[in-house]
Amino acid sequence: MAGKDYLNDVQECEKKPLWQRIGWLLVIWTASVGSLAIFAWLIRLFMTAAGMKSH
């Protein structure tokens, strides 16, 4: 059953130290915020190149 495999995965993850789980959370969050910032910067760059300025 797939339910038992999932339960085993959850129990295996809970064996890892709290600092390691929080560390991965911070790494993933930082990467997502960074990629969003780069994407927004690129959109602004293309809009400025096309002549659309905010001022």
Rank of each mutant, 00 (worst) to 15 (best):
M1I: 11
A2G: 13
A2K: 06
G3T: 12
K4T: 15
K4N: 14
K4V: 14
D5K: 04
Y6Q: 15
Y6F: 09
L7T: 05
N8Q: 13
N8P: 07
N8C: 09
N8K: 11
D9H: 07
V10A: 14
V10R: 13
V10L: 14
V10F: 11
V10I: 11
Q11Y: 03
Q11L: 10
Q11K: 11
E12L: 04
E12M: 06
E12W: 01
C13T: 03
C13M: 12
C13S: 14
C13E: 03
E14S: 13
K15M: 02
K16Q: 07
K16G: 05
P17Y: 14
P17F: 15
L18Q: 08
L18T: 07
W19S: 12
R21L: 11
I22M: 09
I22D: 05
I22G: 00
L26S: 01
L26D: 01
L26H: 00
I28W: 00
I28L: 04
I28F: 01
I28G: 03
W29V: 06
W29E: 09
T30D: 01
A31S: 09
A31D: 15
A31E: 11
A31V: 14
S32V: 15
V33S: 00
G34K: 00
G34V: 04
G34C: 08
S35E: 08
S35N: 06
S35K: 05
S35Q: 04
S35F: 03
S35T: 15
L36N: 10
L36F: 09
L36W: 06
L36P: 02
A37I: 12
A37E: 02
I38C: 09
F39K: 15
F39C: 10
A40D: 05
A40F: 02
A40G: 06
A40L: 06
L42I: 05
L42N: 07
I43R: 11
I43K: 07
I43C: 14
R44E: 01
L45S: 08
L45V: 11
L45Q: 06
L45T: 06
L45K: 12
F46G: 04
F46K: 03
F46W: 08
M47K: 12
M47L: 08
A49K: 14
A49F: 06
A49C: 08
A50E: 02
G51K: 03
M52Y: 02
K53S: 12
K53R: 09
K53N: 11
S54C: 02
H55W: 12
H55M: 13
